[in-house]
């Protein structure tokens, strides 16, 4: 799975210089995007397929835009998620994609490890756009870029990741990336939503927002899916919000200049209060979306250059 030369499947195992180089390149794409220049032809004649086995608007659109800005032919494939034989569809799809000479394959799938399985079977470079509860590497990269642009660095910062860590691929990718670049990571959530032995990854676990947010430079909120309430992991949305939802009162536990992030889409009033989410000074949520396009351009750029070298 550690195949940095061809695919982007996970942050775990990536080396800090490799991550920093990607962020530097993404930074240049931020400037390019803001300048309004178009017509880059880096990926002209290359085919990018967005293969989404789960619904997504934000990530799919972001990859689509990134591909188009670099001149690629972008195709969106939404594959209906039937509850049985998803895997058969997966490898059948791989065979189809090989026949189409796809160059870059962006995959989102509900099962951990599905992009890694596809990567063994397709000739394209595979980019994991979120797999089950495993990883979502471009989200972590865009989060890091957002933080770095605001704070100038990641090293030494305290980043609190709050909420449903157990089911969060965003949290896992962020943990690996932030630790690789020298941040300290606090995880905060109810014990039922903290994964077993996660402290062994090098993070500090808290169940209380006051303690966990103390000294935090960045407060990263995670989405709480509605089905967690019926699964008995938390009793109710209002109870979750009372103890782990981010409102102005709890944000005050963090550093006075702490910034707020969320990977979206948000459940307002469940994990985050609207006044915090929409705070023009402290909330980075809109900026995260902008950085998303730049980071994905950088990833497509790097992977396609590597593929060319290997041709």
């Amino acid at each position: 799975m550690l195949t940095p030369n061809r695919h982007l499947l996970q942050i775990e195992g990536m080396h800090p210089p490799e991550i920093a180089a990607l962020l530097d390149l993404a930074e240049s794409y931020v400037l390019l995007n803001r300048s309004g220049k178009t017509g880059r032809d880096l990926l002209r004649g290359r085919t990018l397929i967005n293969l989404f086995f789960e619904d997504s608007t934000r990530t799919r659109t972001s990859f689509e835009l990134a591909g188009k800005r670099l001149g690629a032919d972008v195709i969106n494939m939404a594959v209906a998620q039937s509850s049985v034989n998803k895997g058969e569809t997966l490898l059948d799809t791989a065979a189809t994609l090989n026949a189409m000479n796809c160059d870059l394959l962006v995959v989102r799938h509900g099962q951990s490890g599905a992009p890694a399985l596809l990567a063994q079977k397709v000739e394209a470079s595979v980019i994991n756009a979120g797999d089950g509860t495993h990883e979502h590497p471009t989200q972590a990269l865009l989060d890091a870029l957002t933080i770095r642009r605001r704070r100038g660095r990641l090293e030494g910062l305290v980043v609190a990741i709050c909420g449903d860590v157990l089911h969060s691929r965003v949290a896992r990718s962020n943990i690996h990336l932030l630790l690789a670049l020298g941040s300290r990571v606090h995880l905060i959530g109810p014990p039922t939503l903290i994964p077993t032995d996660v402290a062994r990854l090098g993070v500090t676990v808290f169940h209380d927002m006051k303690a966990g947010l103390a000294g935090a430079d960045i407060v990263m909120m995670l989405r709480l899916q509605k089905e967690r309430m019926t699964g008995g992991l938390v009793p109710s949305a209002r109870e979750f919000f009372r103890f782990w939802g981010l409102d102005a009162e709890k944000l005050a536990y963090a550093r006075p200049d702490a910034l707020v992030m969320h990977p979206g889409p948000m459940n307002r009033g469940v994990e985050i209060a609207s006044d915090v989410a929409d705070d023009p000074i402290r909330s980075l949520i809109k900026e995260q979306v902008e950085m998303g396009v730049a980071v994905r351009m950088a990833v497509l750029d790097v992977l396609s250059r590597r593929a060319k070298r290997n041709d």
């Binding site: 951990s112 495993h134 896992r172 990854l201």
Partner: peptide, 15 residues
Amino acid sequence: TAGELATRLGLPSIP
């Protein structure tokens, strides 16, 4: 089996 590896891989686990 529940533990660090299952947590890293994001796999649903059994204690």
